[in-house]
């Protein structure tokens, strides 16, 4: 499990995000038009790809893509 794959999968899921625009230190709430739909997409992606279910509180506890990735790895 490497962060590049994780970012690639996220970029695929978000329609309006150009490939290569998300970096490990990106605060995911600053992704264009970030909203509750994106949160659901992230939870669904992590659930189906890594079989780990994050709660809303889990998601609120992290800010950057790197922190999110580390959280998934720690579960």
């Amino acid at each position: 499990m490497v962060i590049e794959d994780f970012i690639g999968k996220l970029e695929e899921e978000f329609d309006d995000v150009a490939a290569g625009s998300i970096k490990p230190d990106t605060d995911f709430r600053n992704i264009e038009d970030w909203g509750s739909m994106h949160a659901l997409i992230v939870i669904a992606l992590i659930d189906t790809e890594y079989d780990i279910t994050l709660s809303g509180a889990d998601l609120r506890s992290v800010n950057t893509i790197q922190e999110l990735f580390d959280l998934v790895k720690s579960k």
Binding site: D15, D16, E32, D33, G35, M37, H38, L40, I41
Partner: peptide, 13 residues
């Protein structure tokens, strides 16, 4: 919702 938010909404839900 903005146009892009509407697209996102339709795609997601």
């Amino acid at each position: 919702l903005s146009e892009s938010e509407r697209r996102m909404l339709v795609k997601t839900i």
